[in-house]
Design a protein around this nucleic acid. Sequence first.
DNA 1: ACTACGTCCTGCGAGC
DNA 2: TGCTCGCAGGACGTAG
Length: 263
Amino acid sequence: MPELPEVESIRRQLEPLVTGYYVTEASSHPSGKFTPAREVVGLGFEAISRRGKYLLFHLDNATEMVVHLGMTGQLLPVTNLSDPYLRAWWKFDSNLILGYRDIRRFGRIRIYSPGLYEGTLGSLGPEPLSDDFTVEQFYASLKRSNRKIKTQLLSQRPVAGIGNIYADEACFKAGIYPGVRQLTKSQTGALHESIRQVLALAVENGGTTLRDYVNAEGKKGKNQYYLACYGRDGEPCVECGEILRRVIIDGRGTTFCKSCQQR
DNA sequence: ACTACGTCCTGCGAGC
DNA sequence: TGCTCGCAGGACGTAG
């Protein structure tokens, strides 16, 4: 599932391929989730930025095409336009065809006017790897809610870009049980630090590939070899040797060490 | 306003 | 071997 490190890896590879070029032709799956992809024909791509798990393609008419990859979304150059999972594609004047593949169709493509980030993009928490993400505001944000800490992380409100993999990794590294509802200041500091470390490492490793994720070159990430917790249920904890357990927290699979992550 | 839960999707793996 | 069934989960809609 593409989270911040995966989306950032794609952004870095895609930017030199499409910036400075304009779209000569585009197509999409009939679902309203993807039809906005067709609206950018004739427009130039000026830059690609990222906000949380969203990719923002800056267009030369001052709007932005915002792409969320959902669970199984992929953005990469394609040649086979009859690929059954190709949900949208854009042909550029360079002749490159950028494809959006998405097996489960959980992703979305929208056109936004900058400054008018209605809804989700506007209420997104700070970027975890920027200076905007401070322990003080993180503590204040978490304190405002009584939901389980993992559920809060997945909500994108206290901080942006975290999904199921890195939520489990960060909680493990901070020694915090993901089902706890309130954190002390010291626990918040530890979680703040672990979020940054876990995400920075994953970006460095080009993202985590457990199933569908590939970067814009169609290649897998390497961070799956560095996961300490997620997907390791039944295996021994790297810290204490305890067998990691998997439970369901608010409907999401959650792996943790019952010895290192106290309630 | 907050919280909890159902929904969308489809490939895959477990179980019979 | 071949089938059915439930699981995986990000964001959003709805209900309480």
